[in-house]
Amino acid sequence: MSAAPARRVWDALARVADPEIPVVNIVEMGIVRDVRVDGERAVVDMTPTFSACPALHVIRDAIAGAVRAEGLTPEVRTVLSPPWTTDWITEEARAKLETYGIAPPAPTGEGTLIQLEMAPPRCPRCGSFDTGIRNTFGSTLCKTLHVCHACGEPFEAFKSL
């Protein structure tokens, strides 16, 4: 066991784009949890963003492919604990999401898992907080649909999970 090959795998995985939001990669999204390299074998722990995310098998295959390209034999494991949270999305990835037009998720708070309303996100185009929700569900499981009352533009926001 040595750190250098694991570092190489982490770097390779940081080049794997999120299949649904290709401006960010799966490492900065917090999907890759651990990498262990033992000789020719690399074990990668990944965690699903949403239980029913249809991109999971695509991500799993992409991880295996990236590991093989490094000359290693991949074993991709899915772990549920601790559960993925949007708090694991890095600052850099949040900035990329906002530039891409998706309002990044707000920090999650504990103790309020069952609540009936959510705080309004900031418009990724003009920065206004004067926004209204149009749909608590969007084009993918991880997003909600909003409209900005200041600039009039519709936009998507990442759910805080």
């Binding site: 699903p48 949403f50 559960p83 898992l113 069952i114 609540q115 309303e117």
Partner: peptide, 15 residues
Amino acid sequence: EAVEKIVREERFHLQ
């Protein structure tokens, strides 16, 4: 461990 994940998703349904 599993419900820790599911409970986070359910909240959007209920809202």
